[in-house]
């Protein structure tokens, strides 16, 4: 057993225990750690964005290299601060309009291609000879039945209390399997996070495990 002599490890251990103390009940130490986390995260983001984006992308090109067209995005960016004033709040609409217009223009064709066209293409069912193996054909058939039955469930499923046709019923089974898989993964994720902290406390801090 080699207890850590690092001040930072002790601090991290204390903060971890502070968060876990909520399991007993809400307390001032927990609230302090929670606030500290929010504050540190915000501060960290400001520093990283300033150093990695603001200075190399705007400050240096504009004020070091004298690249004056960069004034336009700078002014547009400054308009965001207009929301602090009731009188000038309308100015924020201009950068928002650029963001939404540009973002939608960029995303729409590509998102449609990747999320709709490609997904629909991959749902098509071909004859068994098209696939590398029988297993691949069975996989494709299950996906085909799953997609069609779930669509039928959403679009043609009758109101609750009345009998559903066979396909929408199969759709419900597929949905339940999907929810079950998601839930199983979620449980695993939460346990993994807990294990991470236990591993830190027992290993890095107390030195009980290697």
């Amino acid at each position: 057993m080699h207890i850590s002599t690092s001040l930072w490890t002790w601090l991290a251990a204390a903060l971890t225990i502070g968060v876990f103390s909520f399991l007993y009940k809400d307390n001032p130490f927990y609230r302090f750690v929670e606030s500290l986390f929010v504050g540190v995260s915000a501060g960290y983001s400001v520093v990283i964005i300033t150093a990695n984006s603001f200075i190399p992308n705007l400050w240096n090109p504009l004020f070091k290299d004298g690249n004056w067209p960069y004034l336009v995005p700078m002014i547009l960016g400054l308009f965001y601060f207009a929301m602090l004033s009731k009188r000038f709040a309308y100015l924020t609409r201009i950068p928002f309009a650029f963001m939404i217009g540009g973002g939608a223009g960029l995303a729409l064709p590509l998102a449609f291609q990747t999320n709709v066209i490609e997904q629909v293409k991959s749902t098509f069912l071909f004859n068994p000879g098209y696939y590398k193996s029988l297993g691949a054909f069975i996989d494709a058939a299950i996906i085909f039945i799953g997609v069609v039955s779930i669509l039928l469930y959403f679009y043609f499923g009758r109101k609750r209390g009345t009998k559903l046709g066979l396909m929408p019923r199969i759709g419900v089974i597929f949905l339940m399997i999907g929810f079950g898989a998601s839930f199983g993964y979620t449980v695993m994720a939460r346990l993994a996070l807990l294990i991470g902290r236990i591993s830190f406390l027992l290993g890095d801090w107390l030195g009980i495990i290697r």
């Binding site: 449980v187 695993m188 346990l191 993994a192 294990i195 991470g196 236990i198 591993s199």
Partner: peptide, 11 residues
Amino acid sequence: IRNMNAVTIAE
């Protein structure tokens, strides 16, 4: 792998 062993037991 070690952490996953712990998760496996928990599951």
